[in-house]
Amino acid sequence: MTTAVPPAGKGTPADRFESEVLQYVDGLYGYAIHLTRNPDDASDLVQETYARAFKARSQYRLGTNARAWLFAILRNTFLNDRRAACRSPRTVSCDWLDELAGEDQDGFESPRSPDPQKSFLAGLMREDIEKALNRLPEEFRSAVVLCDVEEMSYAEISQILSIPIGTVRSRIHRGRAILRKLLVEWQSAMMEGSGGEVLAGG
């Protein structure tokens, strides 16, 4: 059941292919959780991604970007499955996003001093941030997660999402601003006592 991964540059091309692709299991699983929002579905999605990658290994050239290739397979698999599950065409309305991002699209609100901002951010629970991330349409969530969690370059993300680098850039800028705004709004609602269940509730 175990596979011994040979060091890069050694072994047969098949071994080298495996050693290249198998190093991204954790990252793919993390991204799959953001897409599916469920650990079991995420595992299935990653398994399916590898099944497809192994089948398509002839299309992959050793030494090229295995990570971008695998992440693109995973996302396309997810989107295709989702399209099959809900037949109706899906369009993303960005009106509410624009409204939410407002004029603060490129940055965070100017804080009075750094400390309250940082303590606010440090106090955020995983669930709070996850909930805010889940409010973002997939296109924005993917861009932010791939950039900020997986620390990929805009060029790599552009390859995975099949969109121009400029679009990647604006999605990341806007996605981050919206995330932050949502979290600040929820925090304010809680402080005022009018929305005590905003963060805790579903």
């Binding site: 953001h34 965070f108 901002q117 997660v145 932050r180």
Partner: peptide, 16 residues
């Protein structure tokens, strides 16, 4: 600094 900190929070919380 705030943006960098938020980014590091995202990474710390969601790297699995």
């Amino acid at each position: 600094e705030t943006m960098l900190f938020f980014r590091s929070r995202l990474r710390d919380l969601f790297r699995v």
